[in-house]
Amino acid sequence: MFKRLMMVALLVIAPLSAATAADQTNPYKLMDEAAQKTFDRLKNEQPQIRANPDYLRTIVDQELLPYVQVKYAGALVLGQYYKSATPAQREAYFAAFREYLKQAYGQALAMYHGQTYQIAPEQPLGDKTIVPIRVTIIDPNGRPPVRLDFQWRKNSQTGNWQAYDMIAEGVSMITTKQNEWGTLLRTKGIDGLTAQLKSISQQKITLEEKK
C-alpha cells in the first residue's frame, strides 16, 4: 500500500525546468507551479508516452532531478554507511541512485490517469530550513484521497528550496528505503546496493492501464 502511495505522490513532485522555475526561495510556489507544469506535460505528451513509456525517463531527467536534492536524499538512505564509504564508492552510488530515480519516478508518472491535487495554504517560513507541505491527491475514479507531506529543505548556501522526502501515513519514503535496503547494505555494503540500483534502473517502464 505504501509503495502505491509513494508512486501516486511522485506525480506531483516533478519540479519546473530552470527556464520557467518559480521563486526558488518559496517552496509553496515551487510546489504549486511544479504540480501544474507536471500535470500539463503528462496530459499533453501522452502520444509520446504511450508510444514509448521510457520517454518518461527524459521527462524526469529534464523536469524533476535538477530540483530534487538527489545527493542529500541518497546520503540519508545510506545512513551510517555513508561515512564509511570511499569517495569513489559515493560517486558510483550517487550515479546509480540518480539512474534509479529516473526509472522509479518514471514508473510513478506512468500512473497518471487524470488525477488532480490540492496544496495546503502557504504558511510563514520564518527562519525554518525544513518545511512540510501537505498535498491532497484526488483520484477521478473514486479512490479515497491521498494526503501527503512533502519535505522541502532550504539550501544554506543559495537560499533555494528543494524537495527531498515524502511522508505518507506517518511513514517517510527515506525511512522506507532504509528499511528495504538495510539488509543488503549490511551483507554486501554500498557496492552491493550500487549494483542492485544499476540493475533496477535497467527495467523498462510500463504503463498502468486505467481501472
Rank of each mutant, 00 (worst) to 15 (best):
K102L: 01
V12T: 01
L11D: 00
L185I: 08
A35F: 14
A96R: 03
P140G: 07
G74D: 09
L207D: 04
Q36S: 14
P53E: 04
T194E: 14
K43V: 11
K29N: 05
Q123S: 14
I138R: 00
W181F: 15
T175D: 13
G189K: 12
P47M: 02
A88C: 11
L185E: 03
R143Q: 03
E169L: 09
N155T: 12
W181M: 02
L64D: 15
A110R: 04
L197H: 04
A108E: 11
S199F: 15
A163F: 14
P53Y: 01
Y105Q: 04
L5P: 02
Y28Q: 10
N44S: 13
A120Y: 15
Q103C: 12
Q80L: 11
E180R: 14
A51S: 02
T129Y: 06
L148V: 08
A195R: 12
T20R: 03
F2D: 04
P144G: 04
W152D: 01
D40L: 10
V68M: 02
I200W: 11
I130G: 12
Q24G: 09
V77G: 08
R90Y: 01
K3D: 03
P144R: 03
S156D: 12
A21N: 02
G74L: 11
N179P: 08
L193Q: 06
N160H: 13
N179G: 14
Y164P: 04
D40N: 11
Q89L: 10
Y112D: 15
F2N: 05
T129Q: 10
P124F: 05
I190Q: 05
I205G: 10
Q151A: 12
G170P: 09
Y93V: 14
P53W: 08
G126L: 14
Y93K: 15
R143M: 15
Q118V: 09
Y117W: 14
G79W: 12
V60G: 05
Y105G: 02
D32R: 03
F39T: 10
E45Y: 00
Q80C: 11
E63S: 08
L56F: 08
R41M: 05
D165F: 08
A110W: 14
K204E: 08
Q103F: 03
L76W: 10
R90P: 00
P15N: 05
T183E: 08
P15W: 06
F39C: 11
V60F: 09
A88T: 14
A110F: 02
A120R: 07
V146Q: 07
G106T: 09
A19Y: 01
D149A: 06
I205P: 08
I138N: 00
E180V: 14
M1H: 02
L65P: 07
D61W: 12
N52I: 01
A108L: 07
D149M: 09
T158V: 15
N155E: 12
G192N: 03
Y112H: 12
K154F: 13
K211E: 04
W181P: 10
K198I: 14
V8S: 03
E91H: 12
P144V: 06
N179Y: 14
A88G: 05
A95S: 01
T25C: 03
K211V: 14
R57L: 05
N52A: 04
S84P: 04
L65Y: 13
A108G: 07
A34V: 10
Q103R: 09
Q62M: 01
E209A: 12
Q62V: 06
Y72W: 06
M1L: 01
R153H: 13
Q80K: 15
T20H: 15
I174F: 15
Q196K: 15
L5Q: 09
T38F: 13
D127T: 04
K37R: 05
A88Y: 03
E122Q: 03
I167L: 12
G170E: 03
I137V: 01
K177P: 10
L148T: 14
R186G: 13
L56A: 06
G142E: 14
Q196R: 06
R57F: 00
K198D: 12
A120P: 08
T58S: 05
Q89H: 01
G189S: 13
Y117T: 13
P144Y: 12
Q46M: 00
I59M: 04
Q69M: 01
A104W: 10
A14R: 05
G159P: 06
Y93I: 14
V60T: 08
A14F: 15
I205D: 12
Q103G: 07
Q115R: 09
T20G: 13
Y81N: 01
G170V: 03
N52R: 04
F39V: 04
Y112N: 04
D61R: 01
A18T: 11
K43R: 05
W181Y: 15
V8P: 02
N52H: 03
D127M: 13
W161S: 04
L5A: 01
T206V: 09
V77R: 09
N179H: 15
K71Y: 15
T187H: 09
V131W: 03
K210A: 14
Q69K: 05
R4W: 11
D40I: 10
Q89S: 12
M6N: 04
N44W: 11
N26D: 03
D54S: 01
R50Y: 14
S156N: 02
L185Y: 15
L207N: 15
Q178H: 06
G79H: 05
T176F: 13
E180N: 05
T183K: 12
S172D: 00
Y117H: 04
G142S: 12
A73Q: 14
Q107W: 11
L101M: 15
A104I: 01
T86P: 02
T86H: 08
D165Y: 10
L16R: 08
D139W: 14
K102T: 13
S17E: 03
F2C: 09
A21S: 06
P27T: 01
L101A: 01
E209I: 04
A51Q: 00
V171G: 10
A120T: 06
A110H: 14
A110E: 06
L42G: 12
Q36Y: 00
D149Q: 09
Y72A: 05
L65V: 03
A22I: 00
Q62G: 06
L64V: 10
D40P: 10
L148Q: 02
Q80V: 09
S172G: 07
E122D: 14
K102M: 00
E91Y: 15
I59W: 00
L11C: 14
T25G: 05
D23E: 00
L65N: 11
Y164L: 05
L65H: 00
I174L: 15
A19F: 01
I49V: 01
S17A: 02
N52D: 04
Q107C: 06
Y164H: 04
V171C: 09
M7E: 11
P132C: 00
L64M: 12
K71G: 11
R143I: 12
A14D: 01
I137D: 00
D165G: 13
D127L: 00
S201G: 10
A19H: 04
M31Q: 02
Y55C: 12
N26A: 03
K71E: 06
Q48P: 00
G159T: 13
I49Y: 13
L109C: 06
A9M: 05
A96Y: 00
A18Q: 07
R57G: 02
Q203L: 04
L207Q: 13
Y28P: 06
Y117F: 11
